[in-house]
Design a protein around this nucleic acid. Structure first.
Length: 591
RNA sequence: GGUCCCGUAGCUCAGUUGGAUAGAGCGGCAGCCUUCUAAGCUGUAGGCCAUUGGUUCGAAUCCAAUCGGGAUCACCA
């Protein structure tokens, strides 16, 4: 990594010249702004203070030192207003080019022996996945890939919320309105089928509430006393008791949902090493509560309910066990956190969960710490913002939820339309076409959701839909296909390794950018943020397209230039391909 | 009310461990396909970085206050 290397060498120089060692924070190495000559810039201001030197004096001393001591690294420097601009020796870049232009492992780190768990997706089994779930799935999958490429062993897990009042609602509605219909009998995808009954429940519930209000009850009582809600609650009790007919229906309906989910997961590329089911884990954590009572982490109130007081931490009191001894959400989570650690002994546990649960996750970690669980400090909440519509939040009650399957179908169909209009893939077989449309449609969707900083909420405008031009997945895919097309027509001569002619700006820019892949990957991994990588890949593709427009590759001015540019193109294609793969996006050879 | 997050071009977003004249894409306008894929490229217009103070050589970035938006604080999950 050049920027790190430069920092190291500069630090050595400062030590030799002034006998002072600076920490990482105290000086910066940045890529030089395009309007100045040079490739990397050391900011001198912070150093001047300690060294009591003028910028020019210091810059010349350090620049001269670096040039003399590391001629393979630098070939020139200049100083402008306290910025020391360094020009990188082309030979260094050429060496990288020769070595890595076809290397799929370029920029990736070897195994580091550490284990990270990434929990993501985590759906409810009462309705199909929607746009929000897609952000979660894409983020989780991409982070897992980025961490793998950074040397970690990654365990992908999923917790399925397969029990509770929500699924009972779908079940009640099915009994009342389905007349024995099934996904098979209706030809519907299982998760959509079950979701429809969830909607039917809410419709019926709404009507009952209105009736009760008309009969003179207030809203809160009406909501509590609506018969269909009471039935759902009774069903939950029966489920916990294990009433066979309820369990059987529950199994069936969940099975339908899983069959539906599987299709979607397969399509978007989500997979898990281990799936936990809440029905199997919801009792975990109860015994830890006992332990916590002994340790005085928790306290029991007069009615028998058990609480933790987090007011010293600026939070509130939190219930961890109901007075009837049943557990609440957080109880299960404590139990599951412990279970996961027992099973996998991971060094770090990442939870990909929306920011609406920031408070919950804070409390969870705090409780785990107070209980002294061994993995408490290694719990990390990868919190992401909600996906909103221009009209505000998606609301299932108002029918404004963007369904995941529908959206994917729409994106794929737009991809097909675009491709057909352009007419560039007439030689594709029908199967190849289907694969290509999927690749482009999903590429557009994934890139759209991943290019934004995870922690920020984002707006999705279904009217304008997702573009295929500019900062998009298809743009990068297109750039890759374009390079591949060039490389099909002229082949790289492996023996060509020396390039005497000076590098032109667009050539050098691509080499410098490609070189930064490793740094960007590292940053993405450290900040658990695929958007950094997504932005970088766009920038690289954009630079390549400018290069492509400005310079001829196949009919370059000399064989040397032709070979150089072919290799640069190959280098860029390699980085685009592995970078996009880390976002969970495939790139085509042709499009 | 307590806690936390956000506010950058008409729109969607980068840039936030403090660094040079704040950048992209979309949309607008003007151009570029008889040679490697125009899903592309080039140029141009568009900004009080919510507001006001502070910290310093230097602030979109750090601190404080204010205004605006959101999340959360359930014996729900």
């Amino acid at each position: 990594m050049l920027s790190t290397l430069i920092r190291e060498k500069a630090n050595e120089g400062l030590k030799e010249l002034y006998d002072v060692i600076f920490s990482e924070k105290e000086f910066q190495v940045n890529p030089t702004k395009p309007e100045f000559t040079g490739n990397y810039t050391i900011v001198l201001f912070s150093l001047i203070k300690t060294l009591k030197n003028s910028p020019d004096q210091l810059g010349n001393a350090l620049g001269g030192y670096l040039l003399e001591k590391h001629p393979t690294l630098f070939i020139d420097y200049n100083i402008i207003k306290g910025f020391l601009n360094l020009t990188i020796n082309n030979e260094l870049l050429i060496e990288m080019l020769n070595k890595h232009h076809q290397d799929p492992c370029f920029g990736k780190a070897p195994l580091n022996g550490k284990k990270i768990m990434v929990e993501y997706s985590s759906p409810n089994t009462n309705k199909p996945l929607h746009l929000g779930h897609l952000r979660n799935n894409f983020l989780g999958r991409s982070i897992a890939k980025i961490l793998e490429a950074s040397g970690y062993e990654v365990i992908k897990t999923c917790i399925v919320n397969d029990r509770g009042i929500h699924i009972c609602k779908s079940m009640i509605a099915w009994i009342k309105y389905a007349n024995g219909a099934t996904p098979e009998s209706t030809g519907m995808k299982g998760d959509h089928f079950v979701g429809e009954y969830y909607v039917k429940f809410n419709d019926a519930y709404k009507i009952e509430i209105e009736q009760l209000i008309n009969e003179g009850k207030d809203k809160a009582t009406a909501e509590k006393e609506a018969p269909i809600m009471l039935e759902a609650q009774q069903m939950l009790v029966d489920w916990e008791k294990g009433v066979p007919s309820v369990i059987e229906l529950w199994r069936n309906m969940n099975q339908w949902v899983y069959q539906g989910f599987e299709v979607t997961y397969k399509r978007i590329g989500s997979d898990f090493a281990k799936t936990y089911y809440e029905s199997e884990t919801y009792l975990l954590g109860k015994d830890i509560i006992e332990l916590g009572l002994d340790k005085h982490v928790f306290n029991k109130k007069a009615d028998g309910s058990i609480w933790i007081d987090l007011t010293d931490e600026g939070l509130d009191e939190k219930l961890v066990l109901r007075k009837d001894g049943t557990s609440v959400y957080i109880t299960q989570d404590i139990g599951l956190a412990q279970r996961k650690y027992e099973e996998f002994k991971m060094d770090k546990s990442i939870y990909v969960i929306g920011d609406e649960q920031n408070y919950h996750m804070k409390v969870l970690q705090l409780i785990c710490k107070k209980l002294g669980l061994p993995n408490a400090d290694d719990i990390h909440h990868l919190s992401y913002g909600m996906v909103e519509l221009p009209t505000g939040k998606m609301k299932s009650r108002e029918g404004t939820v963007v369904d995941a399957d529908d959206l994917i179908d729409e994106m794929v169909s737009i991809a097909r339309e675009h491709t057909e209009n352009l007419g560039k893939v007439k030689d594709f077989s029908p199967e190849e076409l289907v694969a290509l449309y999927d690749m482009i449609g999903l590429g557009a969707l994934k890139y759209f959701l991943l290019r934004v900083d995870p922690k920020k909420k984002m707006i999705f405008n279904p009217e304008e839909s997702i573009d295929f031009h500019g900062s998009t997945g298809p743009f990068i895919q297109y750039t890759h296909a374009r390079i591949k097309s060039v490389l099909r027509k002229s082949s790289i001569d492996k023996d060509f390794k020396e390039y005497k002619t000076a590098l032109l700006d667009p050539e050098k820019e691509l080499l410098l950018l490609s070189e930064q892949f490793e740094t960007v990957l590292l940053q993405s991994a450290e900040s658990l943020d695929p958007s950094t990588l997504a932005t970088y890949l766009f920038q690289l593709a954009q630079s390549f397209n400018s290069f492509y427009a400005a310079l001829s590759i196949a009919s370059a001015e000399s064989e040397e230039k032709k070979q150089l540019r072919l290799k640069i193109s190959s280098m860029v294609a390699t980085v685009l391909c592995s970078g996009m793969d880390l976002l969970g996006i495939s790139v085509p050879e042709k499009m």
